[in-house]
């Protein structure tokens, strides 16, 4: 292994790290948002929507991510065009940047897993907590935000940490639709200088560094929340 190349590759890949992390954060937050909505639809037994969510989740959990990314890549622009056409908007969806398509595809897929995590963590809050809030005259929304969610969050936090890492790694599939992340950048560098091992070792180290950071942060946050209950 060539140390000088290693260092060069490091400098070459580093600038792409913030972008990759930012992409991961966006997808992660979206997946929690969509996951929460799906969990609520299921918990509150909303007719029709509930059946749709169940089918949708089954489809997403059973489809390889790369397949779903390609489906989105080839169909999302036409779908968007159809809707903008209905609204008489003059927008050509074939110019949608591939990063947006990646965000949509990965967020939806991860949200189907998040929905389960979120549902489980809300179910783990004992019914007595809800009863107590109701008996004091809280509105359902107040009970939800002040009492139930903070407790559910403690349960969900470790799962969220690993979900973030799953997202982080899933983004590397974006290479297939020309989104450049840590992995894609290392591939580009490797093919230009032909030092393959060095490039991928650097990429792996970077993923690993981010993982260490995320795990440390969630652990810290978790123990802080635990000390509060």
């Amino acid at each position: 292994m060539n140390l000088e190349i290693l260092w060069q590759d490091f400098l070459g890949i580093l600038p792409i790290v913030p972008q990759t992390v930012a992409l991961a954060v966006i997808i992660f937050l979206l997946s929690i948002l969509i996951g929460t909505i799906m969990a609520l639809i299921q918990e509150y037994n909303v007719p029709i929507l509930k059946q749709m969510v169940i089918l949708f989740k089954l489809f997403l959990r059973g489809t390889p991510l790369i397949v779903f990314i390609f489906i989105m890549y080839y169909s999302l622009p036409s779908v968007v065009n159809f809707f903008t056409g209905l609204l008489n908007m003059n927008y050509n969806a074939h110019n949608i940047p591939p990063a947006i398509i990646l965000i949509v595809a990965v967020s939806l897929t991860v949200s189907s897993f998040q929905a389960e995590t979120i549902r489980g963590s809300f179910l783990s809050v004992s019914y007595g907590q809800m009863e107590a809030a109701r008996s004091l005259g809280y509105t359902p929304f107040q009970a939800f935000t002040r009492i139930i969610t903070p407790q559910a969050l403690v349960e969900a936090l470790p799962e969220f940490g690993s979900a973030f890492l799953v997202v982080m790694k899933a983004i590397s599939l974006g290479f297939m639709i020309t989104v450049v992340d840590i992995f894609a950048q290392s591939r580009l560098i490797a093919s230009s200088n032909s030092y393959y091992i060095e490039a991928f070792v650097v990429a792996a180290l970077m993923y690993w560094g981010i993982a260490v950071l995320v795990v440390t942060l969630t652990n810290k946050f978790e123990s802080r929340l635990l000390s509060k209950s």
């Binding site: 004992s126 007595g128 907590q129 009863e131 107590a132 809030a133 109701r134 008996s135 004091l136 005259g137 509105t139 009492i147 903070p150 407790q151 403690v154 509060k228 209950s229």
Partner: peptide
């Protein structure tokens, strides 16, 4: 329902204090 609850208060067998 809210009116009834806001004019009463309940002490539960299992206490049900807010854990957070």
């Amino acid at each position: 329902t809210l009116k009834l609850r806001r004019n009463t208060a309940m002490v539960f067998q299992q206490f049900n204090l807010f854990k957070n």
